[in-house]
Amino acid sequence: MTHPTSTGTDWGKAHFEAIYNCPDPRRYFGGLQPLEYQIPHHGQAVFRALADALQRRRGDRPPLRVVDLCCSYGVNAALLNHRLTLDDLYDRYTGGGPGAPAGDALAREDRAFYAGLRRPDAALVTGIDAAEHAVGYAVAAGLLDRGFAANLEADAPSPQLCRALDGTDLITVTGGVGYITARTFARLFDCVTAPPWVAAFVLRTVSYRPVSALLARAGLVTERVTTRTFRQRRFADGAEQRAAFEALAARGLTTGGKEADGFYHAELYVSRPAADVAALPLAELLPVF
């Protein structure tokens, strides 16, 4: 399947409404595979490293509690909690033929599939996304322990969501910043009694300063991985690439060695309380990066 016709965001980035809110993730993976969408692969290594560090700090406390923003079909939860790779997910969801199961049947099959691959140290994952069908699939497939179809840019969190957020250890996001802003983070942090760690992959076309300023007010220090950037996906077309280059130029950034290769590039930001930053420097927390 080729990528669908898309419309643009305010900064020119394409989005794919036709694949983000389906009964199951087959169109999503089929649409993004030709664009070599790969940011969840990078997120897998980072989020596992952060989860391991948090678990060491917690000792024998109950399972880690993770909130994945813009969770879509539970891809980050699948990669965090199960013995598989992003390529495994592409293989599973892009090879279907005429006899492939319908959405509900696939979710039931997937629930058994993921249960057999679940890691013993799996985190409890709450997913938040405006796409109600995608969230519903992720819950039905057992990828999300709790899922909320919510647009926190527009609406305050429900009492049920607020209760689910309290006690969060780690917030993750792989590319949603820009679609969501500091407003979403502010509403999340209104629901927690102690600030969690935050790990965000943010496209270089988007400034993270408003979010990091909000997190600073909540008591978190934000650090950026400076040793590399992370490919997100290929540009959907020339118009999207030109818009990205214009956005980067407006931010005073050059594309050589990065977006000039035909891919969006993201930066990784990690926010933690100052005491945690002092006790475990970022270079030791994420040594491979």
Rank of each mutant, 00 (worst) to 15 (best):
M1Y: 11
H3T: 14
S6H: 00
W11D: 07
N21Q: 03
D24I: 15
P25L: 13
R27H: 00
Y28D: 00
F29Y: 15
G30L: 04
L35S: 10
Y37T: 05
Y37G: 08
Q38D: 07
Q38N: 05
I39C: 12
I39N: 10
P40L: 11
G43N: 01
G43L: 11
A45S: 13
V46K: 07
A51S: 09
A51D: 08
R56M: 10
R57P: 02
D68S: 13
C71G: 13
H82Q: 13
R83D: 09
D88N: 09
L89K: 03
Y90V: 12
G97D: 08
A100D: 12
P101C: 10
A102P: 09
G103H: 12
R108A: 08
A115D: 15
A115E: 04
R119L: 06
L124K: 15
A130S: 02
A134R: 05
A138S: 11
A141C: 14
L143R: 04
F148T: 03
A149V: 08
S158M: 06
P159A: 11
Q160S: 07
Q160F: 12
C162T: 01
R163C: 10
I171H: 04
I171L: 13
T172S: 01
G175D: 05
G176Y: 06
G176D: 15
V177G: 03
G178H: 14
Y179M: 00
T184V: 15
A186Y: 08
L188K: 04
F189V: 01
V192M: 08
V192S: 04
V192E: 10
P196C: 11
L203R: 05
V206G: 00
V206E: 03
S207D: 15
R209V: 14
V211E: 04
S212D: 10
A216T: 10
T222M: 02
E223Q: 09
R224F: 08
V225Y: 03
F230P: 01
R231T: 09
R233P: 08
R234N: 07
A236H: 10
A236L: 06
E240F: 05
R242D: 15
A244G: 02
E246L: 04
E246S: 13
R251L: 15
G252T: 08
T254C: 05
T255A: 11
G256C: 12
G256S: 09
A260H: 14
D261P: 13
Y264P: 02
H265Q: 14
H265A: 14
S271K: 06
R272M: 14
P273S: 07
L280A: 06
L285Q: 00
L285S: 00
L286H: 10
F289E: 07
